[in-house]
Structures are given as structure tokens and as C-alpha cells.
Design a protein around this nucleic acid. Structure first.
Lengths: 332, 332
DNA sequence: GTGAAAGCGCTAACAC
DNA sequence: GTGTTAGCGCTTTCAC
């Protein structure tokens, strides 16, 4: 068995209460005994039993980081940045539990006792029910990446629409009029926001494009490849293609080179996300940076702060997205 | 407050002991009362308090997935596949806690009480002390990705050396004699294994290369770019370059195109890992696939099995790596 | 087949 | 400044 405060108490010749207080730095305890007890605890290699502490304190020291899904639609870079951002903030103080919402058969185990707080990295409205459930259970909750309206939560999202707008406008400024879009996964809020930004920019500049310029994708490399192949077969081929994420842009570029054409000479391609690899593609990808790591860090800080102080404005905060100009778009 | 077994007991007119037994499917309980109690529990929306259960059962329901670091050296794809693999296996039964070992100031909180089991995704010997610590504390432990000799653990690793060997041999078969290597991060076991495989293949085929053909990298995109730039300046430029991972290969290809040369016409490039994006690069990357997701899945299964049955051979299992031939290597 | 009672390790009133 | 006591919610002997 491992050592408990009672063992320490025995050795120190005090009550276990005193040990508990000393170890928790209670101001009530004589500094000398405190030091003595801490020394003994150290020498005995004492570690608190968190289950016991959790039981009486009614906190779990668990923080959940939930993704809509851990399968298709979540890119590796996205997961990586999110985990990094959150982990940087919580340090040793909490356990970071990572899970896909669609892995739950029932949300039964998700409650205040098991989670001191939850961060939802939401990519689609399919996790609306989860968010409402958590909010209902009054678990401290921050939702990242997707705006949530039905319930009041702390909500941090990148401004995808204005990013897509600026990117599309940039394409127009480079002389493009035939601009197609390869869309993201159906049902994802980001898909809609990016499409909206694209449309808005076209409208603003009085450009109309044929229906065939809207091609669906699902954020996968393969879907970008397939979508671009379709576009290339069009009699009225676009001169530029806005791919709704970098993965699809990579697939799209591939499709272009496969038919003997080249980017950006024959067709310009732009992406969204600014993945790590995007600067290193050939050609380097013009894209929009989404500050996922910052978002995650801010979300984690907000959540921790809420857990400690118990108050905070539950409002939507937009995070700035940024146009990153590289070499995959040609001026015509 | 949330509902406890006592509340259920009151409503059902039985003792809380009976409720506990019923909910745990004890065979001692009358099937009818059992059903009745379960129904009541359901209707009251009961969820067990895991802290209480953990306290008495001495299990935490936490599983740790530890990486050497969550910062430089761990690629997004690596993290992604590992989390996916493990998560697929553990389902609802455990909490998956993800952390970088280098984030710990002290391993104090890592013990049997907090973790029912630990999976270490080890990338370097720097986490040797962590592994020994966990092994010492008798926490069920499986180490993935790196062979561990100093202590007996369940150990699953991809056969990097034979992968590198086969890849290098393939380069030789394609007619290359001037083959350089861009190495991985210093101190990582994988760096050494891949270098060894490369060397072995060269020796086997009686090829010697100048000292300058060994260029150091650190698994980053940037380092691949920098390393390739160095190689390109060599008077006796190599005809093929083995990059010790795909990220560096991407950086390397970039460096080649930047000076107006092309892959594979002017110089062949090969990678290692088979990242998602590798098939979609231009040119598609010839590389070696490491079965990280399978490894993780197997590790998680093994660990769970050990936790339940309490026995298992603690031995090294090598996982097959696979040469993936694409378009970035030219036959000369 | 069910209940009474003890105890897991900890914190926190309440005494003194 | 320290000790006594109770209790968090659960499982598990031991009775009956």
C-alpha cells in the first residue's frame, strides 16, 4: 500500500488533520511543524490520493478536450495545434482528456463530477446536442471554432467568413474572374462560413460564376483531388480555385499536375488553414491562417479562470484570420 | 446535488447495498428487484460517482498516453494516428489522458492511483527516466515506437532499420550511387535506426559516400530545407537523398525547386513515415510506411488485456514497415 | 436474496 | 495551533 496522511501523522506525532492542513499550506499551522511535516512527507515519498480528495472536494481535476470526431474531417494539424495550445496552459494541474464526441454511445459519464470543465472543439452542428447536454449539466464549458447560438457559452471562433472573403477578393485583385470553390464537408459550420465569404466577395465585385463552379468536397485530400478533376473537365475551366482547406488544395494541385498542367501557370489554387506543410508545397500555397493554437490557449485560460472565479461573460469572441500570400496564385 | 445509490435505495425500498449490487449485476440479486432498481436508476438519471468508486476499488479509470514531447520533433500526423489508434480501442471505458513527458516538472502525480495504465509513445531516450519511474511504480506500462532494454516492458516498435535498409537498397537498384542522408533529431532512437539501415544497405552494396553526405536535421520541415540547400552546394552533388522523415523530404523538395532544379529529374528524394500528404505532394513521395495507428491500437489492446488479466509477456515486438514506391525517385 | 456496518483517504466543521 | 469527529459515495465482508 502507498503512504497516506495517517502514516505521516503517526511518524510526526500529530493528527492526520494537521498533516492535511500542513500539506495544503494552511495558515493555521505553526510554520515549524509545517516544515517538519512536509519534510517527512517528502522523505516518505507521499502522493495524495486524488480519488479521495476528489470525493470530498467534489472536483475531478479532469478537463475534457472534445472533438466533433476523431475520424474523417479532423485534420492531424488541427488536432495537434489544439492539444498543444490547451496543454501549454493547464500544465500539471489538470488531466487533459481527449476524445471524439462521436465515440460516445451515451453522454452518461460526462458530468460535473468527472469533468471540472470541458473544451469543445466543434466542427459541426452534429455536436449541438453534446453542447446542450454539457451546458444543461452546468459543466464549465467553452466552445471553440464554431459559433453556438442555442445556448449561452464561452465561445471563441476564427473569423472564417472574412478570411474567405479576403482571399477571394485577393483572387479578384489578381485579375481572376472565373473562380471556382471546392467546398468542405457538408454540415460543418466552417464549410458554410467559407462559402459565404467567397460568395460575398464575388457579389461585391459583381462577378457571377456558373453553378458548376461549386464543387463539393469533405476536407480530405482525396476529395480535393476528385473535385479538381471535375473542374478541369469543364468546358469553361476556372482560372482560379479556392479550396476550403489546405488538405484539399494539396489534392487539387496533384490533380492539376497529373493532367500535365501546372499551378499557378495554368490554374491558380488557394487554400485555407495554413497548415504546417503549406509553405513547403510546390508551389507554396496561398492560404488563410486560422489561429487554432491561440484559440485553444485562450479557451483553456478562459475555462481555468472560470473554474476558479466562477464568473465570466458568456459571449462570442471572433479571432482574426489572416491572408497568407505565397506562390500558388498567378496574377493575370 | 446529484443522485446517489442511497436516493435510489430509498425510492426502491431496499438498502443501498442492494442497489450497488444490482447496478453491478451481481448474481446474488433477485432478477426482478435488479430490473426494478435499474429502471429506477435510469429514470432518476443516475450516474455513479467515479471518485468514490475509484477510492474504494483503487482504480482511476485513467489511461495515460504520453509523448516524449508535444513540441518540436513530434509531427502532427504522428500524434493524430496514435490518439486515434488508442481511442478506438478504449471506447467509453477509460479516460484517455494525453500529455508530453517534458511537460512534467515532477513525476509525482504519476502513480498507480492516478493511472490504471500508461502508454508511452517514446521517441527518444530522454524519456528513459520516465519509463523506469513508471515501471518502478509498477504501473501497467507499454512502450511504443522505441525499443527499451533497461527495464522489462511490453514493447512494440516499428522496424525502422529494415525500412531504411529496403528504401536505400531500392535507391541503389534504381542506379543511384551518390546517396545522401538527411538525418533526424539527435538523440532520437529512430534517427539512429534509420541511419543504421541506410549504412547497412550501402555497405552491403559496396558503396561509400563522402562524409558530407551525412547532413543533420531535426525532423522539421525547415531543417529538411536547410539540409538540402547544403547538399545542393556540394561540388559532388548526390543523385538521391534519403530524408529521414516525410516532413523533411517536403522541405528538401522545396529547396530543390527553389534553385530551379526539379525532383526527380535532377535529384531523387525519398522520405520516411508515409504521411497522409505524401501521396499528394508533387511529385508523390517514395517513402516507408510506419504503422503507427496499428501500433497504438495493438498497444492499447495489450495494455487493457494486462490490466484485466494481470499477466502478459513483457517482450519486444517488431512491426513491419513497408516500402511505398511513388514518383520522387528516378531510375538512372 | 438482502441488510448492517466498516472502511477506502481525504477535508472541514467544531471544539478546546 | 491542534485534535476529534463526521462524512463524501461507494464496495464488501459478515450476518441472517
Amino acid at each position: 500500500m502507498s503512504v497516506t496522511i495517517k502514516d505521516i501523522a503517526k511518524l510526526a506525532g500529530v493528527s492526520h488533520t494537521t498533516v492535511s492542513r500542513a500539506l495544503n499550506d494552511s495558515p493555521l499551522i505553526n510554520p515549524e511543524t509545517k516544515e517538519r511535516i512536509k519534510a517527512i512527507a517528502g522523505s516518505m515519498n507521499y502522493t495524495p490520493n486524488y480519488s479521495a480528495r476528489s470525493l470530498v472536494l467534489d472536483r475531478s481535476y479532469n478537463l475534457g478536450l472534445f472533438f466533433t470526431t476523431l475520424h474523417t474531417g479532423t485534420s492531424a494539424g488541427f488536432l495537434y495545434e489544439a492539444i498543444k495550445g490547451v496543454n501549454d496552459v493547464i500544465k500539471d494541474d489538470y488531466n487533459l482528456i481527449v476524445r471524439g464526441i462521436d465515440d460516445y454511445k451515451s453522454f452518461h459519464k460526462v458530468n460535473r463530477k468527472n469533468f471540472d470543465g470541458i473544451i469543445v472543439m466543434s466542427q459541426s452542428e452534429s455536436d449541438q446536442s453534446f453542447i446542450e447536454y454539457a451546458s444543461d449539466k452546468e459543466i464549465p464549458l467553452v466552445v471553440l471554432n464554431r459559433p453556438v447560438e442555442s445556448v449561452q457559452v464561452m465561445n471563441f471562433v476564427p473569423d472564417d467568413q472574412s478570411g474567405a472573403y479576403r482571399l477571394t477578393e485577393y483572387l479578384v485583385q489578381q485579375g481572376h474572374r472565373h473562380i471556382a470553390i471546392i467546398e468542405g464537408k457538408q454540415g460543418f459550420k466552417s464549410t458554410q462560413a467559407r462559402r459565404d465569404g467567397y460568395r460575398e466577395a464575388l457579389r461585391k465585385h459583381g462577378i457571377t460564376v456558373p453553378e458548376a463552379y461549386y464543387v463539393s468536397g469533405n476536407y480530405d485530400l482525396e476529395s480535393g483531388h476528385a473535385a479538381m478533376s471535375k473542374l478541369l473537365e469543364l468546358p469553361d475551366r476556372p482560372t482560379a480555385v479556392f479550396c476550403c482547406n489546405d488538405d484539399m488544395a494539396l489534392g487539387a494541385v496533384k490533380a492539376v499536375t497529373e493532367v500535365g498542367l501546372s499551378v499557378p501557370e495554368d490554374i491558380s489554387v488557394a487554400g485555407f488553414d495554413d497548415h504546417l506543410f503549406s509553405a513547403f508545397m510546390s508551389p507554396a500555397l496561398t492560404t488563410v491562417r486560422r489561429p487554432i493554437e491561440e484559440l485553444s490557449r485562450a479557451g483553456a485560460e478562459k475555462l481555468l479562470n472560470f473554474i476558479e472565479t466562477k464568473h465570466s461573460e458568456k459571449s462570442l469572441v471572433l479571432f482574426h484570420t489572416e491572408l497568407v500570400i505565397r506562390d500558388s496564385v498567378k496574377s493575370i
